[in-house]
Each structure stands twice: as structure tokens, then as C-alpha cells.
Amino acid sequence: MSALLRSPLHERHVALGAKFASFGGWEMPLEYAGGGVLKEHTAVREAAGVFDVSHLGKARVRGAGAAAFVNSCLTNDLGRIAPGKAQYTLCCAENGGVVDDLIAYLLSDDEVFLIPNAANTAEVVRLLTAAAPAGITVTGEHHDWAVLAVQGPQSAAVVAKLGLPALSDYMSFAVSEAGYVVCRTGYTGEHGYELVVPSGAATEVWDALIDAGVQPCGLGARDTLRTEMGYPLHGQDLTLDITPVQARSGWAVGWNKPAFWGRDALVAEKAAGPRRTLRGLELTGRGIPRGHMQVYAGDQLIGETTSGTFSPTRKVGIALALLDTAAAVTEGDLVQIDIRGRRTEARVVKPPFVQTSVR
């Protein structure tokens, strides 16, 4: 653990009895004493929880035409949104594989703030820097900011109590008088906010949230929450070998744009049809699926799970899996997951596995 980076809130996590894990090169809280993943997951679904996600990257692109430049690189179409809005997008390789999925905050035509995943931040910054024309700068600000995700049905009341703008429009953001960026985003499927605050102010904001009765939550609950929603995790459900077309993330691709990284490969794959597709699987009996478990239709191997967990909300095992298109399985069909040598029946379903208040 000693070689791992630490959040500016690390000592707060220690004081709360956090169990730590390595994630994207950072030592981050997995769960806290006095409840664990189940309590933390339930708090987000029913009330409000706060996640320290300061390991997420931060980068800024500035200069005349910065938004147009970013738009020519990343998959989604920034032209669909106005300043003050954020957008989920993908950074793809030329073969269509996903280097990273990230959030782009459009400040103006000349400034875009990006939040990539922790492990991929350096590569995203490198690629953008190498492609940037004269007059446009790409600056890594990974350690300048902390990110706190306040999620759950009561999150709006909590954010308002802190004197911050409790925005109602999904994927909108505002900058507070103190310079905090408040965005109506999250990774849990619940109404929520991500607060991007200067690293030096992180403990003050964290303490205010805990004093307001918000449940501290670790990355264990973040994973069960996002899996229940069918949200992909880079490194598992999206990788350099798994394209947006295969992952059913084509909605985050601006297909009519003339240029973005990986465009030719993705357009060709979309036209031909992917050889495999990401599907939801719900166990019909007992068992907990994990990633990289083989999936069968009868005696035929048809794919592999990419993510899997026990759903605290549904009380059933759930998974995301890449299934061969040629197998022609459809929603409602039964397949089997090889869980530690035992074939366990699962039904093919369309995520999300739970219905929540994301919008």
C-alpha cells in the first residue's frame, strides 16, 4: 500500500475505520466499520451516501476552439450540449477499443474540464496533448481537486443544506461562490451530485457532509450500485478489446460527426454488426457471479462475464456478460454461468436490474 497514492481525505477514512483497497494506483476506502457494503448500498438507495472518488482524474483543455478540438477526439458530440452541461463520452483507440470513458464538462467554446478514470488519466492527457494544435493546452490537474459524490434520494436536501446549488437538471453543473463545481451526475442510478472541490477544502466539505448525517460509502458499495444499473466499468466492461458497439454504449457516440478517434473502425463494426454483445444476466437461484466466468447455452460456450455481484436490492446474483452474437440469445432466454465449476442457471435480461431515480 505504501507506493499507492492517497486521497486528501485519507486520515478521515482511517478515523472512520475504513478497510482499504488498491484501485487505479490509489489506496481508497472499500467499506467502513459499523455497516459495510450492505449498509452503505442501502443508504444510497433509500437516503444519502457520500463517496470519496478523488482518485478520478482531472484535466483541463484550454484555448481558442478547445471544445471543437475535444469534439474531434472523443466519441460523443459536444455540439449537443451547451456550456454548463456535462457529457459522458469515450476516448477510443483507432481500432475502436476504449482507452477510457470519462465525463466532459463544457465551460465554454474555449475550455473543457475532463474527469477520466484514475488509471487512464495519464494516457488520456498524453493523447490529447500529442494531438492538440498550436494555441490549445492540455493540463493535468489530478492532484489539485478532490471529488465527493453525494448520492441518494435525499442528496438534493443535503447539498442545499451545505449552501451549494442543488441543481435539478441531469448532467448540468454550476460553480459555487467558493469555486466548487457542483454537477448533477453520479454512478449509482440515484439522484445525486459530484462535488469537485480544491484538495485543500476537501476535509471541510467532507466533515460538513458527515455532520449532516450522510453515510460514508466505499468503493464496494459503488460497485454493487453501478452493477445494479448496468453501468460499465472501464477495465472490465469496456477495455481496449471491448468496443462501444459491443458494450451497447453506442448512444455515447456521435455517429454523424466527421471525425473522432476510432471512427472508421466503429462505423464499420456498427454496419457489420458486432461479433459479441454485452448483456445482463440474472441468476434464477443461489450463487454470486464474478468477472471472467464462462457462460454456456447448453453445451455451447457462448461468452464470458465481465462484471458480477450479489444485488443487495434484488437479493439475487447479477452479472454483465459478453455473449456471442451468433448464439442468438434474446431477453428471457436461460443460460448457465460456470461459478467455480458448477453450472448455475441465469436469465438474459436488459439492464438496469433495478429501477431508480437517476433523472
Results as ranks from 00 to 15, higher is better:
N120V: 03
F173E: 03
G179F: 11
I136A: 04
H143Y: 11
L167V: 04
S172E: 13
N117A: 05
A122D: 06
G163K: 08
A174Y: 10
F113D: 09
G186I: 01
L127G: 15
D169C: 09
G135V: 09
V138R: 08
L127T: 07
S172T: 15
M171C: 09
L195D: 03
G186F: 05
G200Q: 11
T121C: 11
S108A: 07
S168E: 15
Y180D: 14
Y180N: 11
N120T: 15
V158T: 06
P165C: 12
Y193Q: 01
A166L: 11
G200S: 10
V159H: 00
E141P: 04
V124L: 06
P116V: 00
V197D: 03
T139L: 13
A131H: 11
E194T: 02
I136F: 07
G135E: 05
A131Y: 12
R184Y: 12
E177N: 12
A119N: 07
T137Y: 08
A130P: 14
V125S: 00
Y180L: 12
V138G: 09
L167P: 00
T129H: 09
A149S: 14
L162N: 05
E141C: 04
F113N: 03
C183V: 15
T121S: 12
E111H: 02
V138L: 10
D144H: 07
S199P: 01
P116D: 02
G186D: 07
A146K: 03
T121L: 07
P133I: 00
Q154M: 14
L167R: 08
T139K: 12
V147N: 10
Y170S: 13
L195I: 01
T137P: 09
T139I: 11
Y170Q: 14
A160K: 13
R184H: 06
P198C: 07
T129A: 09
A157M: 10
V159Q: 02
A157Y: 03
A174S: 13
A131N: 10
A119Q: 14
T188D: 07
P116M: 01
A149I: 03
I115Y: 03
L107M: 14
V124P: 07
F173Y: 08
G179S: 13
E111D: 06
L114F: 04
V196L: 15
N120H: 11
A202L: 01
L195F: 00
L107R: 10
A146G: 08
V147L: 14
D109N: 04
L107G: 07
V182I: 09
A131G: 13
P198W: 06
G189C: 02
V181A: 11
A130I: 05
V147P: 00
G163M: 10
R184W: 15
P198Q: 12
P133R: 05
M171S: 05
E190I: 05
Y193A: 03
E177M: 14
S168N: 14
K161T: 14
Y193R: 01
P116A: 04
S168D: 14
N117K: 01
P133N: 02
L107Q: 08
A118W: 01
A166R: 07
L148W: 00
V138K: 09
H191I: 06
Y187M: 14
L162F: 02
G192K: 08
V196H: 15
V181N: 08
A131V: 09
V175W: 06
L195P: 00
A160C: 04
V125D: 00
D144R: 06
A131W: 13
T137C: 11
C183Q: 08
G163W: 11
A178R: 14
Y187H: 15
L195R: 04
V197S: 03
S155G: 02
C183L: 06
Q151F: 03
F173T: 04
